[in-house]
Every structure is written in C-alpha cells, then in structure tokens.
Design a protein around this nucleic acid. Sequence first.
DNA 1: GTCTATACTCGGATAGAC
DNA 2: GTCTATCCGAGTATAGAC
Lengths: 208, 208
Amino acid sequence: MTPGSASPAPDAPARRGAYAKGVAKREEILARSLEVIARSGYRGASVKELAEAAGLSQAGLLHYFGSKEELFTAILRKRDEVDSRSFGLDPEHPVVDDVRGGYVGIVQHNAEVPGLVQLFAQLSVDAADPEHPAHRFFLERNRLLREAFGASLARRQAEGRVTDRVGPDTLARLFQAVADGLQVQWMLEPDLDMAAIVGALFDLVERD
Amino acid sequence: MTPGSASPAPDAPARRGAYAKGVAKREEILARSLEVIARSGYRGASVKELAEAAGLSQAGLLHYFGSKEELFTAILRKRDEVDSRSFGLDPEHPVVDDVRGGYVGIVQHNAEVPGLVQLFAQLSVDAADPEHPAHRFFLERNRLLREAFGASLARRQAEGRVTDRVGPDTLARLFQAVADGLQVQWMLEPDLDMAAIVGALFDLVERD
DNA sequence: GTCTATACTCGGATAGAC
DNA sequence: GTCTATCCGAGTATAGAC
C-alpha cells in the first residue's frame, strides 16, 4: 500500500447469528488471497487461483464476492485494514511522534510484498473508470490518507520543524504522489531503494 | 508522458527503396493510433479499434506489428518522439534556461491527452514483467530522462540555485516519481492540478 | 453453501486466398 | 500487403444439482 493506512467503509456487517459463518469465510478468503498474492505475486491472478488457495471452487468463491473486481477491491481494503493495525498508522490514532519513521517503515514493508504492490498499481489504473467498484475506494482512501498526513505536517509546520514554503495539503499530495510513483518504478527496477527516496523528500521539507 | 522526453532505440530503419512504403504506413498507423487514443481515450483499446482508425483490418495491422504489446510499445515510443520535438526537451538538446517551465509545460500538456496518460500508466504496470516488450523501453527511457534532468539539476546546484541537501540523482528520481504518481491520481481525480503540485516541488528545491 | 459443468464473451493470433 | 475467415485460449459468469 501507499504509506499510511486507511479503511474507508470498513464494510464489516458483523451480523450476528445466521451470517456469522459466512462472514468468517469471507474473512478467510481474503486472508488467504493476501498471502498468496503477497508471496506468489499478482500476475493477473485469476479468481480461480485464489479460490483454490482458499479451498474453494471458482464458483464457490464468487458466491461471496459478486465479481472479480469486487473481490480484488475487498482484498485491497483488507490489506489496508491489516497494515493499519500493524503499523499503528490508523488515521484515528496516529503515532504523532515519528511520522517520518512510520512512513518510511511502510515503504520498506511494501518492498517485501511485490505482489500486493502490483495489485495495487493495477487496480489504481483500472479504478480510473468511475464505474469500477474500486473507484470510490481509492478516492476515499487517498483523501483520508492525505488529510491525516497533512494534519501532521501542519502541526510540524507550526512548530517550525517543517518548511512552510508549501502548504500542508500540497505537501501531503506530494508525498502521496511520490509513494505511488516510486512503486511503479520499483516494479520495473526492484533494486530501487524506495525508502531512500522518500527519506530524501523528508530531508527537503524538514528544517535543520 | 512523464515530463521530459526520450526516445531510446528510435527504431527507425528508414530503409530506402522497397521498404519505404511499409515504413510510411507504419508511421501512419502510429500517428492515427495516437490521435484516437489521445482523443477517445484508452479503454483497453483493442487492436481492432486502432486498425479501423487506420483503415485496416486487425490482421492487416498485425502485419506491421507482430503483437498487441509491440504495437502499444511502438505507440508510446512514437509519442515520446513527437513530444520530444514539440517541447524541445530532447535530452541531446535540452533547453537549459528554463527547466522548470519545460517540465511544468509537459505536465500541463499531458492533462489534455487523458487517453495517453492512461495508456502510459497501464503499460508501466504491464511492463514490470521482464518479458514484456516495453520492459526495456521503460527502463531505458526513465534512465535517459533522469540523467538529462539530473545533469540540469547538478548544474543549478553548482550555481547555488538549487538546494544541495539532496543529490541530483535522487532529486531526479523524486521528480520522476512525482510525475508518475500524479498521473495515477489525476486519472482518478481529473480536477487535480498536476502542474501546481510539480511547481510546489520546484519551490521546495529552488533557493530564494 | 458449495460444487460441476457449461456457456459466453472478448480479443489476439494465424492460415490462406487474392 | 491486405483481407476474410477461423481458431483458440483465457477467464468470468451462471445454471442447476447436491
């Protein structure tokens, strides 16, 4: 994922009783899918592939997610949810003290899950179509991330620790663009040290 | 395209005599394809679609380009060639005086050809596969662009007009990542002012 | 809820006539 | 060099049995 985590529309019905099992299965499917993609990579992974990984037939899986696109959108959403927890970058509970460390940490983490990076990049492109199920997801997600990060930056600008040559919103946008763009370049050149470049951007904006 | 233009492996045999017509037709196909994509957008444009635009059948077109992927790679190459000329950003003849203006200009230009931006983004992702015909193209292209831009930056650093907090190579990489990342975000949010964000990055690195 | 089987669509590739 | 025709594969989606 792009640094920072957000889970717009957590989509967890968490219904009691009758639906409980179904929900659990859904979760399991997503968890497995994440594993498979993270490890084996996303080579235009087919629904069938992921179904098998979850011990289901293709049709069985599509019972839970209406279509391929919705499945993949759900996978990305799940990923954000997971990363959000493990990195404590939940927009509601930001680790205020070390934005830089957190951001760089996620970038480094991403370099260990090439398949997810690829899935993310692919879906980002597909989601340009307003009809794509992931369209709103990306819109919302990006906005949340920028808002959270922008708020941190504004705070640090007020403290005089970050340059105020550029406003916090634009700075946040800049960081987001760098993270997204680096991923694309990194897919092409896996040797690229994404964290170093992001670090350089911090060097540019941090004072002293 | 990402700001800056480069045409690695210009692939112009420009053979005389027998091949002349074939080459011309090839060029025409590319020119038409560019028009169509730039205007009507790249909705996973099919070979057939482009063939018709060039007044050819699908099979007829594939006579010139072996496969879909090679066709699209050639289109991108052609685009760089065209932009390279009209923006005078040819790495061999850089317009040294106004790097910022040139860079921002291209970004603005891109905002007028959404289809090409989309094609570029899509192919960037596909080309992650080392087997993809565009793989080398992107590698080479990106490198050339960074080298040219990095050289400009180094010069300006020496003059004290650009911060030397970060080395020129890393700075060039940063600009490239921003341009790529912004395109993805712009596809999602066409209202985004890409030029403004790029301008902000210049503000961050330029002194005084 | 899950499977098997199938249908259908899309698009790229290829053969062969002209 | 260009077309028509065909083929073929991939992959999603759906119908219907269990």
